[in-house]
Design a binder for these strands. Structure first.
Lengths: 224, 224
DNA sequence: TATCTGACTTTGGTATACCAAATGAAATCG
DNA sequence: CGATTTCATTTGGTATACCAAAGTCAGATA
């Protein structure tokens, strides 16, 4: 997902990726003020490219610029999460419908393979592995939709809730239910049933929203 | 739609709004190289805030950064337009469904009023007035959905195709059909029928896409 | 004449300089 | 002792300086 953190990329891009990582990992907590000189030194970059990175992060919604006090890690409240998941669900639904219509055999085969890897992680109770495989599958479905604008829009919004999305601790039941939904996704995709896939994905996202909101309300009443 | 072009806004924001206007109006045609010094002088701004504005426009998709050659007004081809409209249709559909569920009477009344103003513009054959009213109605439906992430996402994507969206010259029939669709929108909204409104809006956007693509293919085979 | 070459110029990328507003701390007043 | 005023410092906003890579073009060469 990094745009391009590689050594040859321009500094604004490198700073962007580094900062995004820091925010998503929680090293820069929501609400934290981002001192340009200090942050620049930390990243080994001067203020000019750093400020460009901050503007890009603001466009992604991970950072807010407050008048006369600079950049702050964007707070995230319940309403933000609900709104974002509402849009993500619609985008996933669209992705599913288009993917069912457009996916080719090699793409489908690879998604099936990932699906079984994911089930393996679930069987072992390996949350990190599960999340990675899960994310990869959703990314591949979006890619199979063959719509770059959709992928980009999804990634942008997903970044906003990622901070909290993968912090949600699944209960065993919810986890099992998610896996079962994935199972049905594969079948719908295999049958090229767009309407069904859309419905499953929308429900799947609704479930994720619930579990994220539950974890959110419980853990940090106000994440900002 | 300008973020805030006012005199008290910081220069990156002012430059952002000014540049967006220049691009949407076609004063900066697709593919044009954006010389930082020249552009800065034109806007009365130094390169530092200008570069921040360019990064924000890149995030909106109106500008592209090419390696070692700087910023360029983003080209827009048929595939971009199709992909963008596909996502816009899904977002409008979601907006409609949510709006039908959440709109209150004053909001609905105002949309009805705008609707009749729009019909007046249509009756007079006033395209500019029609487009403005039309845009306003769609914006209000999105607002009535009560989802800021949705509004923001929609605006961001819409900006990409605005350049070409309002250049499409409607035929009389297509125009009449659009107005009739708007009529049905109002009824669905009035009846709080989310599913119907979603369907109408998705079809409406599909029609817009067709008319834009037709105008696009005819006029400028390659808008870049 | 066509092509190559090398100095000059332009341009984006990055760092630094400067300013005014905001912040914080110390001194002063009630 | 608490509130407040003042002054030093920090910080964001903006402009400018510097560099290396790309681009340009005249003149030399075959």
């Amino acid at each position: 997902m990094p745009d391009d953190g590689s050594l040859l990329a321009p500094l604004p891009i490198r700073a962007l990726d580094a900062l995004r990582q820091l925010i998503l990992d929680g090293d820069l907590p929501a609400g934290a003020r981002l001192n340009e000189r200090a942050l620049g030194e930390r990243l080994g970059v001067s203020r000019t490219p750093l400020r460009e990175a901050l503007r890009m992060l603001a466009a992604e919604g991970l950072v807010r610029h407050e008048a006369k006090r600079g950049a702050v890690v964007a707070p995230l409240d319940k309403a933000d999460i609900e709104a974002t998941f509402e849009v993500l669900a619609a985008l996933e639904g669209l992705a599913g419908e288009l993917a069912a219509r457009r996916i080719d055999e090699p793409q489908l085969a690879e998604i099936k393979a990932r699906h079984f890897e994911m089930r393996a992680h679930h069987a072992r109770g390996d949350r990190a592995g599960y999340f990675a495989a899960n994310q990869d599958i959703h990314r591949r479905i979006a890619a199979a939709a063959g719509n770059p604008a959709l992928v980009e829009t999804f990634e942008r919004l997903n970044a906003r809730v990622k901070r909290v999305r993968y912090a949600a601790n699944l209960t065993a039941e919810r986890w099992a239910k998610a896996v079962e939904e994935h199972e049905r996704m594969i079948h719908a995709l295999d049958a090229r049933d767009g309407a069904a896939l859309r419905a499953i994905l929308e429900a799947h996202l609704a479930g994720k929203r619930q579990s994220v909101l539950a974890a959110f309300s419980g853990a940090s009443e106000a994440y900002d």
